[in-house]
């Protein structure tokens, strides 16, 4: 549905995004993560047609966004990072105005307005002036504005910033709910948010794509922690020889015990094979457990080394 084809964007002499490519299909919820200044916001601005890339292009259902931004923008709901809302307008006036600018009118406008207001839980504050709203409320008005016209594509730049924990859960549920029939690209600093909300993570480091993988792959669902006692120095070699093992990483070695992270080839459950190996070799099996990596680990690997995490 969205094809980002080797885009680059330069601000003066600074290359904010370099040769970035990825594609998104309908119904996916993509989490865009990466350190500050990595190019996440620039990428989103290019997808929405606000900026034109110096190189490459973005296609939405085959149409080039830079050539016909209006056609793409009709289908996009966008929450910019700074969430700008005119301070002198009331919430209701603002949302009605945005709806009209997006071509909604009459009963359809009223219907969509009441949906968005309910979904973002701002029904009680419709007559408030935007100036008087807290950051969390403003953020929810921004999200209401983005979903108002029932767009196919939602681009949300840090949607949960400024929200309290309860509101974060509500907005996550809303995003997951919207993601059933819409395509969502969101950026965030909170990695647990990506784990909980998104189906896929894109990690951008230094303007390039460092990681592009499904969340369950990234978190290594079937990766195992394996700890044995009474094993020799060749343990790692022996483990690598087991069928279906992709990678063995020695972790900490205490006095008598050795600990490894064993990564299987795609989706294979290694537990029985490792158990048999231990029995065969006479090792004392102390631990054989799923090692859920956190996205923080993936993030650190990708950003510190600059390389591609497994």
């Amino acid at each position: 549905m969205i094809e980002v084809q080797s885009i680059s964007k330069r601000y003066g002499s600074f290359l904010a995004v370099r040769d970035l490519s990825f594609s998104v299909s309908r119904g996916e919820i993509i989490g865009l993560v990466g350190p500050n200044g990595a190019g996440k916001t620039t990428t989103m601005k290019i997808i929405t047609g606000y900026l034109v890339p110096n190189d490459g292009r973005v296609l939405i259902d085959g149409g080039d966004v830079a050539l016909d931004p209006v056609k793409a923008q009709e289908r996009i709901g966008y929450l910019p990072e700074s969430n700008p809302i005119y301070p002198e307008m009331s919430v209701q006036d603002y949302l009605l105005w945005m709806g009209k600018m997006r071509g909604l009118k009459g009963s359809r406008l009223v219907e969509r307005l009441s949906y968005a207001v309910k979904a973002c839980d701002i029904e009680g504050r419709l007559t408030s002036t935007v100036r008087t709203l807290s950051k969390g409320l403003r953020q929810r008005v921004g999200i209401a504005q983005a979903i108002l016209h029932d767009p196919d594509i939602l681009i949300l730049d840090e949607p949960t910033s400024g929200l309290d924990p309860n509101q974060i859960i509500e907005i996550r549920d809303l995003i997951r709910d919207l993601g059933r029939d819409k395509t969502v690209i969101l950026s965030t600093h909170i990695l647990s948010e990506v784990e909980e909300t998104c189906s896929r993570a894109l990690m951008i480091v230094g303007g390039t794509l460092a990681v592009d993988d499904r969340i369950d792959h990234l978190l290594g669902d079937r990766t195992l922690h394996f700890r044995v006692a009474k094993a020799g120095d060749d343990t790692a070699e022996l483990l690598r020889a087991v069928e279906g093992v992709e990678e063995v990483r020695p972790l900490d070695a205490a006095k008598d015990t050795r600990r490894f992270l064993v990564v299987p080839k795609d989706g294979i459950d290694l537990a029985p094979a490792l158990f048999h190996l231990a029995v065969e070799r006479g090792w004392e099996l102390l631990e054989l457990s799923p090692a859920r990596r956190s996205l923080e680990d993936v993030f650190r690997e990708a950003t510190v080394s600059g390389g591609v995490a497994s």
Binding site: G49, Q73, P80, M98
Partner: peptide, 9 residues
């Protein structure tokens, strides 16, 4: 707010 204005259809 120019960002929102210029991403309106």
């Amino acid at each position: 707010s120019i960002e929102l204005l210029m991403t309106l259809p």
